[in-house]
Structure formats: C-alpha cells, structure tokens
Amino acid sequence: MKMSRISHKIHLTFTSLAAVGMLSGLATTTAMADVQIGEVANTQISIYGILDAGILYQDKVTTDGDRKLGVETSGRTPTILGFKGARTLDNGWNAFFNLEAHFDLDTGMFHGSGDAEKEADDGSGRTLFRRQANVGLSGDWGTAIIGRQYGPAILAHLATEPRGFKEQFSNTYAWAYSQLFTTVNDAAGDAGRNANNDVGFFFKNAVQYRHNLAGVDFGILYSFGGQEGSTSEGDVISVGAAYTAGPLTLSGSYQNMRDQQTSEDLVTSWATGAAYNIADWTLKVHFMNTENKDATGAEVLDVDALGLGVDWGWSPKNSATVAYYINEDKAPATSAETRSLVVSNDYSLSESTILYAQMAYVDADDMGVVSRFATSVVANPAPVNEKTTLVNVGLNYAF
C-alpha cells in the first residue's frame, strides 16, 4: 500500500478522534448527569451526553508555514449522546444496557469509526453506536458485559495518563493511531485484518468481566474473531487493572490483536502508569509501547510513548495541567521522535459546564506518514521538521 493511501485513510478515520474522552469524557467531566427519562417494564431508562466545541489556532499546518484558525469539535472530550437502562432482578443482581453514539458538534455528523470496515467516502462513518452497544449483568460477583464496548486496557489508565486521555493534546492519539494502522489495511491494501478493533479503545463481538477486589479495579475482555474454521483468527485479548491506596494509583494493561486471516500477532501493546496526590497537586507518569506487524510479519511500528505531568487545583474553580510527551517510533524503517509540551486550564462555570484553554508546542522529527500519526498528540499531526504551536479555547457542556 502506498504512503499516500495510508495518509488518506488515516485522515478520514481520525479527523477528530473521540476515543477517546472516550474515556476522557467519562473520567474527567463532571457530567453524565444520567437524567431518568422513563421507566418501562421495571427498567429505568436514562439519557446523558457531552457537547464540546471551541476555536483552534495552529501557526503551522504545513511545512510552508501556513496557518489555520477554525472551529474544532471535541477539544477536551468527545461529543457523545448516550442511553442506558437498569433493572433490579429477583436474585439481587442487576441487568443493564448501554447505547452510546459519537458525533461531531461542528457538523452534526456521526464521527468516523476506526473499524476495519469500509466507511462512507466522506469519513462520516456508518456506526450509530460507535462507543457502546451492549447488555450485561452485575452483582456482588462482579460485572459481565456483552457487545460493543470500551476495552479494559484504556480504562485502567484514566487516572495515570498525564492529561487523563483528553481528546486533544494527550496520548489519546498515540494510543489510537499506533493501534489503527495494520488493522485497517494489509500490505496489498485490503481492508479487514482485524475487524473487531476500533483504534484500541472500542471492541465489538466482545465479552468482558470486571470487578474490584481489595482496591484493584480490573477488567478482562475477549473479542471473538468469528472466522470460519478457526477460534483464534481475528480475536482480541485486552486486560487492564488499576490499584489505588490512599494518594497512590498504579495502572497496567496489555492488548493483543491477531490477524483474521493468518492468526498471527498483528498488534501488541502494553502500558503502565502511576499517579500520586499531594494536597492540591497530582504527579503523573505514564509509559506505553505498541508494536505493529504487516502481512509479511515485518515490523511496521514500534512506538514508545512517555508522558510526564502535574495537575494543580489552584482555586475551587480552576485546575491547571502541565504535561510533557516524548513519543518515538523505533521501527528501523521509520525511526523518529515527536516531543510535545502541553499547558492547559479548566475553569468550572458550574458542576458540569467547563470553559477550557489549552496550548501545545510540538517539535516533530522528519518522518514518514505512519510515524507522524503514531507519535502525535493532536488529531491532525503537526508538520515534520517543524516546531508548531497550537492554541485551543472551548466550552464543554455535560448533561
């Protein structure tokens, strides 16, 4: 597959990845008021959402130094709309469902997904409930979930990634892009090397077990390959755990995706992180590695992504973050590094309305398209061999 084609496909898939708040939306927005809208057959049905949009300025969009100013959807978290239901069963268990859609507030269109399936040519996507479409049971024994859902690996690191995997200016994109490439196209340009993976965040055809034991919150997910004649071709294993004891949080994860035609390992990733709270300060460190192979077994990506950060709640309504990222692709053919400094502040207008300002200074090496995306902290990577400044101011409204 030619590089130009890779670039086009990646751009269509991720013009503004959500993956994200994916999580950032769930973890860092005092939102999701979970408003009950009705009760049917003893099932309480609720609606929730996050709307996020702002203005983004970038001083260099190309190597020619072109600037850009425009509306940016999902600067802090993704824009989502969700429905959930819960029902208490006679044996003390609970049954539940989750339906969660992802769309772009600047256009109103569905956000393109990262599934290894053909999307609409304009990149708008065809997946209605891109983030969640599942049903499950819970009790004292834990929680079991069946359907399309968040992977436990990414969930494990929400408290330890320097910016909580916020939608922009975090390692959300390094995580997503580094797990997208070989799942979308093989060496011949054919789609579908692992159709269950959506940028390492969301997985379909999946079953997950979650529980919390002695301060360890963990999840184990298996996504069935569903290929005739094989129980391993195209499957996914994802494991994640976070341990909290007083001011300390530790996190770890592992994911493995196999080719749906050969059952060979396609994407393997692991990550670890730590956070420590001291009064109004929280110190964070997070490291992740992702390796990709092409259809011949050759290494396509070998990305190390290190993030260091500190949060400071400097007033009852303000929280500032400073983070530094060093993301490097060590694959022999594409070796390159991107270094990014991020400064941000969230101002709480109310419990679930946040005015945010964030800036990133990105220094990218000379590199190919794949490395450029896989080491990026922004949706559209800064130009190579340039030092680029991006400024984003926006409003995050949750309900």
Score class of each variant (00 low, 15 high):
Phe218Thr: 05
Gly85Val: 11
Leu69Tyr: 06
Asp198Ile: 00
Leu51Tyr: 08
Ser352Ala: 15
Pro381Ser: 09
Met22Ala: 11
Thr172Gln: 10
Asn212Thr: 15
Asn194Gln: 12
Ile80Tyr: 05
Gln58Pro: 01
Val310Asp: 07
Ala242Cys: 08
Gly240Tyr: 11
Lys68Ala: 11
Ala195Trp: 01
Glu117Gln: 13
Thr389Asn: 05
Phe129Trp: 14
Asn185Thr: 00
Ile278Ser: 05
Gln208Tyr: 06
Thr77His: 01
Gly246Trp: 10
Gly192Glu: 14
Ala144Tyr: 12
Thr231Pro: 02
Ala18Phe: 08
Thr107Arg: 07
Lys118Thr: 09
Leu17Arg: 02
Leu341His: 02
Asp106Glu: 14
Thr296Phe: 14
Arg258His: 15
Gly92Ala: 11
Ala19Val: 09
Gln261Lys: 02
Asp365Phe: 09
Ile354Asp: 09
Met3Tyr: 05
Lys9Tyr: 01
Asp235Ser: 14
Asp122Trp: 11
Glu228Val: 08
Val342Gly: 06
Trp281His: 05
Ser340Gly: 01
Val303Cys: 11
Asp198Thr: 11
Asp311Pro: 06
Met359Cys: 06
Ala144Phe: 15
Glu119Asn: 04
Thr127Ala: 13
Ala323His: 07
Pro316Asn: 10
Val378Arg: 08
Ala305Lys: 07
Phe203Gln: 08
Arg131Asp: 07
Tyr254Leu: 14
Gln179Thr: 14
Trp93Gln: 15
Ser319Ala: 12
Val207Thr: 12
Ile50Phe: 07
Met359Ile: 08
Phe110Ser: 13
Thr388Lys: 06
Tyr397Trp: 13
Ala153Ser: 15
Asp329Glu: 09
Asp217Met: 08
Gln44Met: 06
Lys330Cys: 02
Gln44Phe: 01
Leu395Glu: 12
Glu39Tyr: 00
Asn185Gly: 00
Ala333Arg: 02
Ala33Phe: 06
Asn396Gly: 04
Ile326Gln: 09
Val285Glu: 10
Asn94Trp: 07
Gly123Cys: 14
Lys84Tyr: 03
Tyr325Val: 06
Ala86Gly: 01
Ile237Trp: 15
Pro383Cys: 09
His11Gly: 14
Ala279Arg: 01
Ser178Pro: 10
Ala364Ile: 03
Asp90Ser: 12
Val40His: 06
Val35Trp: 01
Ala27Gln: 06
Gln179Ala: 07
Ile6Tyr: 05
Gly123Leu: 03
